[in-house]
Design a protein around this nucleic acid. Structure first.
Length: 277
DNA sequence: ATGGTTGCCGTGCAA
């Protein structure tokens, strides 16, 4: 899925990328390649795996993104928003009574509010009674749902991006039957994600421009001998927009070739272009 | 059905 457009894009549009880098310090060359390929105005990162004070701020500024909001802890999780333009009210949000660097938000100058999210992966056993990681994932989604629902207003221009660690549609996985009992595609998670999607009348930007049943993936396991040959992908990385922005969606692109870069992340960048009005 | 890789650190754990 190289990309799809609803119209010509313009310089006035907002182009926003989301990418789970699996260590920002290991992925600075990849970040430069993303900038060269998609020229995003804003980049949302997940799994930066670095303490906020050790984040490579200078390297990102040198790539053209001097405006940064960062949350992170040594060796785990970590999210960021990088922007060419000024960011206001940059904030980290903590859910499930843990400060663990899974959510940052900031406003662009024109009022658009951007979120970078890293939803807990949830472990292996899809049973919240037996697996505290899965319980954490469901609680994280429930708290987020309530928070966005409480802030709902018709004119809000919000962009929710990130590694949501759920592939909701059959078209988002390589084999629905094989994955329906695998964490990331189970009905209980998909239902929780649907409640989040309903909390603010979010539009799944990628699926607005590339409807099911066309397959779209953003993640391929490191464990495959040949990820492209096996093509056992999942669409875990998402860009959602509120109704005021959905009307202006212009293009989406998945940078599949990033999975073949030297020293790849297991996720590839997803970029969405939209009108700012 | 199992095991496969990566990144964190300097071992096993999370993904």
């Amino acid at each position: 899925m190289p990309g799809r457009s609803a119209r010509e894009t313009t310089i006035a549009d907002l182009r926003i990328s989301t990418w789970n880098v699996n260590s920002i310090r290991r992925r600075l060359d990849g970040l430069a390649a993303l900038v060269a390929a998609h020229a995003p105005d804003v980049i949302c990162l997940q799994e930066t795996k670095v303490a906020a004070e050790a984040f490579p701020r200078e390297a990102c500024a040198d790539l053209g993104y001097p405006h940064q909001v960062i949350a992170g802890f040594k060796g785990r999780n970590g999210v960021a928003i990088l922007a060419r333009e000024a960011l206001a009210d940059g904030t980290g949000h903590d859910w499930c009574d843990r400060a663990d660097g899974r959510h940052v938000a900031a406003r662009l100058g024109d009022g658009i509010e951007v979120h970078s999210l890293y939803v807990p992966a949830g472990g292996d056993e899809p049973d919240p009674e037996r697996n505290p990681r899965f319980a954490h994932k469901l609680r994280f989604l429930a708290e987020l749902t309530n928070w966005f629902a409480a802030r709902k207003a018709p004119l809000n221009r919000f962009v929710l991006t990130g590694d949501l660690n759920i592939a909701p549609l059959e078209a988002d996985v390589w084999n629905h039957a094989a994955l329906v009992k695998v964490v990331s595609h189970t009905p209980v998670e998909v239902a929780a994600l649907a409640r989040l999607e309903a909390s603010h009348d979010w539009t799944d930007a990628v699926r607005r421009l590339v409807p099911a049943p066309e397959k779209v993936y953003s993640w391929w396991s490191y464990r495959a001998r040949d990820w492209r040959l096996a093509n056992r992908g999942r669409r875990l990385d998402h860009v959602w927009v509120t109704p005021a922005l959905a009307e202006g969606l212009a293009a989406v692109a998945v940078l599949t070739e990033a999975r073949d870069w030297e020293g790849p992340s297991d996720h590839v960048p997803v970029t969405v272009t939209m009108a700012r009005s």
